[in-house]
């Protein structure tokens, strides 16, 4: 039974996934955070160096307790893991190299919706052998999400919001950011304009659409031309709030609900 499950999880030809892995290495920022939340003490050996960067990781404070890796096959192999956690978009050459070296790799889909996040929590619990802890976390996630959604206005009465990041990038309703916006009780202007997942929303189209609020990311360290557009004078007539930190919207983890709560506060509070 356990063997059959393990074989199924590893796919047709990969090395078998142990039922209770003892040395787990994560090579993706998002699996890093889920694993730090759900691993048993001592079970998780290493996470990516990004997990320690507060600009991208919601758990930067916790990452110091683990070895940092750069996601390369050679350094991961040197850690002698019995399980590697990766994203389905992790570099295929790295994943196939690890598999050839006999290390089982479990790949998680990116969480693009609240349902995806829930499913990833449950699956991480199954993979790490901490299903009880995962079930409790999923239940808490459900309860907090339901509480936030209850406060959101009905579809017709929602303020219209656009998320707008460097390079004039707007997130559509089928992205994680879109899901955060929806749970916070906003209508998504990018969706109105036909952007499903995400894409360039020209400054002119944004101003023309006259959203009630434009939610931008907090500025990244160092200067860049890509972020110039967030300070363009044509935005002067709109309400612009720097409300989304990369750490909140990069990964599908329970921390997205912090972002939902923060955005919902913008809805409650009138603009400046």
């Amino acid at each position: 039974m356990i063997l059959a499950l393990a074989a199924q999880a590893a796919g047709a030809e990969g090395p078998a996934v142990p039922a209770h892995p003892a040395r787990v290495v994560s090579i993706n920022l998002c699996t890093d955070q889920l694993a730090m939340l759900l691993a048993a003490p001592g079970q998780l050996v290493s996470v990516t160096w990004l997990a320690g960067d507060p600009a991208f990781s919601a758990m930067a404070d916790h990452a110091g307790a683990y070895l940092a890796n750069g996601g390369r096959a050679e350094e991961v192999f040197a850690l002698h893991p019995d399980l590697v956690l990766a994203d389905i978009w992790s570099p295929p050459d790295t994943v196939s190299m690890l598999t050839r070296l006999g290390i089982p790799v479990v790949q998680f889909p990116p969480g693009e919706s609240m349902a995806d996040i829930r499913a990833n929590i449950i699956r991480m619990g199954e993979v790490l052998g901490t299903a009880d802890r995962a079930a409790a976390m999923a239940a808490a996630f459900d309860a907090r999400l339901a509480g936030l959604v209850r406060l959101a206005p009905p579809p017709g009465a929602r303020p219209r919001a656009a998320t707008w990041a460097a390079n004039a990038y707007a997130s559509g309703p089928r992205s994680l950011t879109g899901a955060i916006l929806d749970a916070a009780g906003f209508a998504n202007v990018a969706g109105e304009l036909g952007i499903e997942y995400g894409g360039t929303l020209p400054l002119e189209a944004l101003v023309w659409a006259q959203p009630d609020i434009v939610i931008t990311a907090e500025s990244a360290p160092g200067a860049s031309r890509a972020e110039d557009v967030l300070r363009h004078p044509a935005l002067a007539g709109l309400r612009v709030e720097a409300g989304l930190a990369d750490a909140d919207w990069t990964c599908g983890t329970p921390f997205v609900l912090d972002a939902v709560a923060r955005l919902a506060a913008f809805r409650a509070k009138p603009g400046p």
Partner: peptide, 13 residues
């Protein structure tokens, strides 16, 4: 070498 995550993408510009 820039610390900004968007910088490398600006080579095209």
């Amino acid at each position: 070498l820039s610390s900004n995550p968007y910088a490398a993408g600006e080579i095209v510009f």
